[in-house]
Nucleic acid binder design. Sequence first.
RNA 1: GGGCGCGUAGCUCAAUUGGUUAGAGUACCGGACUGUCGAUCCGGAUGUUGCGGGUUCGAGUCCCGUCGCGCUCGCCA
Length: 604
Amino acid sequence: MQHVQTKFRSHTCGQLRSGDIPRKVQLAGWVDSYRDHGGLVFIDLRDREGVTQVVFDPDSCGKDVHDIARSLRTEWVISVEGEVEDRGADDKGRSLHNAKLATGDIEIRARAITVLSQSPTPPFLPSDEGVSEERRLKYRFIDLRRPDMLETLRVRYQLTRIMRDFLGSQGFWEIETPMLTKSTPEGARDFIVPSRHQPGNFYALPQSPQLFKQLLMVSGCDKYMQIVRCFRDEDPRADRQAEFTQLDLEMSFVDREDVIGVVEKLTAEIWKGILGKEVSLPIPHITYDVAMDTYGSDRPDLRFDMQLHNITDIAHTTDFGVFKSAPMVKCIVVPDGSKMTRAQTDGLAEWAKTFGAKGLAVTKVAATGFDTGVAKFINPVAAQIIERTGAKEGDLLAFAADKPKVVHKVLGELRLKLARDLNIKPKADFAFVWVIDFPAFEYDAEEKRFVALHHPFTAPKDDELHKLDSREVDVVESIKAKAYDLVLNGSEVAGGSIRIHRMDIQSKVFSLLGIDVEAQRAKFGFLLDGLQFGAPPHGGIAFGVDRWVMLLRGTDNIRDVIAFPKTQSGADLMCGAPSSIDDRQLRDTHIRVNLPPKVETPKA
RNA sequence: GGGCGCGUAGCUCAAUUGGUUAGAGUACCGGACUGUCGAUCCGGAUGUUGCGGGUUCGAGUCCCGUCGCGCUCGCCA
């Protein structure tokens, strides 16, 4: 990396080695720590690139400089001039090199110093461990000084740079799309922005540039990409927040495998560029149906087995009411799970209830048949179940009996939980898989209408178009879409689809979703216009950049990979957003705040 | 919106069944010290126990409310 010399420094704090002896240099940075021996003063000087020890010896720097050195405190910002010298050995001949530092063979013998900034005692030091996240977020600028955090920012930049470089080499253009856009009826809750010019009207922040990128295809841009901020006003989780970043891309004249091919090459570039590892291509495909059936999830973690076994037919032959009456009964085999105590298995049942299950049936595999739990109800079919599941003595069987949706949710989550809790050794560090053939639509019993599983612009598979006129739940739910998700270690890291490029089909889909012609014009008129005036077949995908950085850095906290993240309540603890605004700002936009009455409590 | 957990010195934590003046490490301040790198040694200062109310002779501790933070279910096309 080329480093820019300035009047403050000739080198960075991570740069100098024994080969630089006896060069005259100037470094600038933060005082990471100081060790004052009365005579010698040692300063560890830190910048983005590393740490270099500076020694102030009154015999070589003079009294004035030495006095300043003694007054330095942590996190002051200084610039130092001196010579690079070997650290040598002590009087007993022991090397004074420090193996913990990349620059540990050398030090700077200071000749001059400039204090560029002082600092009071900081709320915490970059080297402090275990500082609460609340403190770290309030003083994020200090938190980000930690080498680990700077490294994450570097990796994040490296990632987006590889994305831009690779896609650029494949003919993609990065094109910006509006941040102030139109609220969409489907999907997540929008963040809204009032319009001053049009009182009573609102922009929405984009949930994704979906429609714009499709229209760019209509425009003949052919290959579009953008690293873009997206906004969804929904409650956060450990791995998601309301404001997040996507690598968005779209291509013309393609079908599913064309998009997948580009994305796989990009993935391999990222893996090589950042982790120095090869991704073996092609990445395997699994259909949605198989993923749900086998792993209970549409984003299966393939690093370990513990697959779901369907024993509905066997369960229905028992006299066990729970099994007999359930629409679906599945189980997983927990290797060596007999070791679990009654308290632990009871705990699992409680835990299962949080996912809407009525409970979780377990039993242990003994030498002959089942033991404990629901054994007495199902022992007559023990041989059949053991044969189907391949369970061995000492294993634990966990059953879910319910509607398919609940069975899959509970066992899918249980699989992940047990892999964590029991420390089941992964078969690989990283397991990529494409999940394909998603259902296009799902019937929403509460709203009594069909909803799009991916989004309403996803193309159904070619041989299923005739089903779009049906309104029968079974028929409509059987329509497969040209949608695909790239899944890594149980995390959806990219998702996309081939889009509908014919207006007649798009209209049919809107109708199926219960959006009448008038609403179609009002909400999506511009898209329909675009499709009407010559749209090429097109499709694309979006990568969750934050999640990629999390995986590359091995963190499960999204806030670790965002420079200035938000808390669970959407607050920025550093700048204090969101906050009230001036009356003037409210007047300009004709907004009156109407809060429910609230108990006044002084701020903590 | 629901469930669970946390909130004590700048920071990380402790404080027995509710019981004396709320402690420790570190950071900080002063002093000593010429090869440290978690420097060392001597000395010092440091509190709205998140906030409000209640129970009690007595509350960091128990109860109610509230605020903040985290995990999570719902939600996230």
